[in-house]
Design a protein around this nucleic acid. Structure first.
Lengths: 204, 186
DNA sequence: AACTTACTTTGTAAAGC
DNA sequence: GCTTTAAAAAGTAAGTT
């Protein structure tokens, strides 16, 4: 009985240490990503829920911690791409993606697809373009997405193309390379999305 | 309006069987032309048939998995070729080993573009998986028949997990009616 | 800028680590 | 869980010409 008691304490201590480690990792990665404190809090709530539902067994603490942070960014409306999250994590992008899908499904997070507009403020700020370009990009995204053009396309590439198009329309041209760099997509993707978008808008 | 059911095409059939005989894969690999066998990498020997095209995985236990066939008839033809090849090596093979279809992969076309965002909301976020950052298809799991459908913006579909061709037909019917009642197929 | 090749997702069996 | 096999869908990426 004494042995069992000690074992329970040991397990409890180990669990506490693991939780502290996960939360400190969430904190570290959140800082590296430059997201506000509210996101870390949402991430830690999701992490504790995953822990309570026993979803961590068979998976790395680091992987679950990173995935909850990715989910929290989305829930708070300031998404980071899997690539960006992977850059500050010790877990590779593929593992983060599949762990996120698992946690999201099991906890019933009912995450809506990322709206490309949510990337516009940050990308525009990084590019140093005016407010006018920003609202033009949002307008392009809304009108083309309504036409079903967004289906299956990555939100970052879609946002990047709209910003590129908006910069041209507002006479504040940024090169495809500049936009591609801040959005972390290729110029080819921007070119493809841009062509579809201006065609849908009837700009020739 | 073409019935989407008529656009269904079987792309891949996976089936398992067994010759009821243990095999020395090392010697089979030596005698069977075109056989790929690397036990360090994978315990099965890979043998490809040309007509019909398929890949058979042959195991030490005598169990065999056939993949890549375009129909259940092709599965049987391919496996007959494999059985005959083994008989040529003086290996006993039952006359008609039971062949069980394990999975059928099908493609189809709804004929119109789909708004996957609207479908994700309409079918219920809890029932679907749609992560365009990771994959362009929307994943929809059906209970009856128990298959998984991938829906694309082009209106093309992939249905997998079925054991018989009718599963794909039933699945297409259900998907079409669900999208129609949601008003997402106009 | 075009082409080619390759990777992402889904199911499924097999034997072994 | 992984390893291997096949096939489709469409998006993205990387390498070559």
């Amino acid at each position: 009985r004494l042995r069992k008691w000690q074992e329970r304490i040991r397990t409890k201590d180990a669990g506490e240490r693991n939780l502290q480690f996960a939360l400190s990792e969430i904190d570290r990665m959140a800082s590296a990503l430059g997201v506000p404190r509210s996101v870390r809090e949402v991430a830690s709530v999701i992490y504790r829920r995953a822990l309570a539902e026993d979803l961590i067994r068979g998976r790395s603490i680091e992987g679950v911690a990173t995935s909850t942070l990715y989910a929290a960014c989305r829930q708070e409306g300031i998404p980071r791409s899997l690539e960006e999250v992977a850059e500050v994590s010790r877990v590779d992008q593929k593992e983060i993606g599949r762990t996120y899908r698992y946690i999201s499904q099991e906890l019933g997070l009912e995450m809506k697809p990322v709206d490309p507009k949510q990337y516009v403020p940050r990308f525009c700020s990084d590019l140093g373009v005016s407010e006018e370009v920003q609202s033009k990009a949002n307008e392009i995204i809304d009108t083309t997405a309504e036409q079903g053009l967004l289906s299956g396309k990555s939100p970052t590439g879609y946002a990047a193309a709209a910003i590129y198009a908006a910069s041209l329309l507002c006479n504040e041209k940024k090169t495809q390379r500049e936009v591609a760099d801040v959005a972390q997509v290729t110029e080819v993707t921007i070119r493809n999305r841009y062509q579809e978008q201006i065609e849908a808008l009837g700009i020739h | 309006m073409t019935d989407p059911k008529e656009t269904i095409n079987i792309e891949n059939v996976v089936a398992s069987t067994g010759i009821g005989q243990e095999l020395d894969l090392q010697s089979v690999a030596m005698d069977l032309e075109g056989a790929d066998y690397d036990p360090e990498q994978f315990p099965g020997l890979v043998y490809r048939t040309q007509n019909p095209k398929s890949a058979a995985l042959i195991f030490r236990s005598g169990k065999i998995v056939c993949t890549g066939a375009k129909s259940t008839a092709d599965v049987h033809e391919s496996l007959e070729i494999v059985f005959d090849k083994l008989r040529e090596l003086n290996i006993q093979v039952n006359d008609d080993p039971e062949i069980v279809v394990q999975n059928i992969v099908t493609s189809a076309d709804l004929g119109r573009n789909l708004n996957l965002n609207a479908i994700a909301i309409g079918l219920g976020l809890e029932n679907i998986e749609y992560e365009p950052e990771q994959f362009p298809g929307l994943v929809y799991r059906l209970d009856e028949p128990e298959v998984v459908a991938l829906l694309f913006g082009s209106g093309k579909l992939v249905i997998t997990g079925g054991k018989k061709p009718e599963d794909a037909e039933q699945a297409v019917d259900k998907i079409v009616s669900r999208l129609e009642e949601l008003g997402l197929l106009e």
